[in-house]
């Protein structure tokens, strides 16, 4: 019987806490971010949707590639023209609330189809650069930037939270592949899983 219990981590069976790889101070800490909600918002009427969302949720949806914006307990990432990924806290009828506010938009709750990995530490940029074609230098990809790209050939959305802290969102089905890539790439720097 297929187990459809989606409250289980997609990393069940491969996620083990502890210190791994090179000895000494770990280059990064890896963790899975759970408990948040993800919405996919897309619209053909960018101005109207931005006005409505700003009024209702206090976030100015960014209109340029690579930009993020933070609002009342939510964060919006530009993922395409008229297209955003919204990170917020889960609550009942969340999708409905956003869809009611943004009348000209399509809103989909994609929480259970994605996973979010956090990579944090002095070697974070070096590790990501091993498998990602983006320019990850802090001047090109500063705090508050986001991008959709590839890591180890897996489609990802990268959210730069701080100089050495990133949240990587990918499809749930890619969780174990990305984890295998990430732990492999991090081994030479040493990493802690928590």
């Amino acid at each position: 019987m297929v187990d459809l219990n989606l409250s289980r981590s997609a990393l069940d069976g491969v996620f083990t806490q502890g210190a791994f790889g090179a000895a000494g101070d770990p280059g990064v800490t890896l963790s899975e971010r759970r408990g948040g909600a993800l919405l996919d918002l897309s619209t053909g009427d960018i101005d109207a949707t931005r006005r409505a969302i700003a009024t209702q949720f206090g976030v100015d949806l960014p209109t340029k590639s690579g930009r993020t914006a933070t609002g009342d307990a939510c964060r919006a990432l530009w993922t395409g023209p008229g297209h955003w990924l919204i990170k917020t806290a889960p609550k009942p009828n969340l999708e409905r609330a956003w869809a009611d506010a943004a009348r000209n938009s399509a809103v989909n709750d994609v929480t259970h189809g994605r996973i979010v990995l956090r990579i944090k530490g002095p070697s974070a940029r070096d590790i990501l650069a091993k498998g990602c074609p983006l320019d990850l230098h802090p001047t090109a990809f500063p705090t508050g930037a986001c991008a959709q790209s590839l890591i180890g050939k897996i489609n990802v959305t990268i959210d730069c939270l701080d100089a050495d802290e990133f949240d990587i969102t990918t499809g749930r089905a890619y969780a174990k592949s990305l984890w295998a890539w990430m732990t492999g790439a991090a081994a030479e720097y040493g990493y802690r899983v928590e």
């Binding site: 590639s65 690579g66 023209p81 074609p133 991008a147 790209s149 590839l150 050939k153």
Partner: peptide, 12 residues
């Protein structure tokens, strides 16, 4: 050069 995202690698 993506008209929206700027210069990106062909692999994308």
């Amino acid at each position: 050069a993506c008209p929206w995202c700027g210069l990106r690698a062909q692999s994308e």
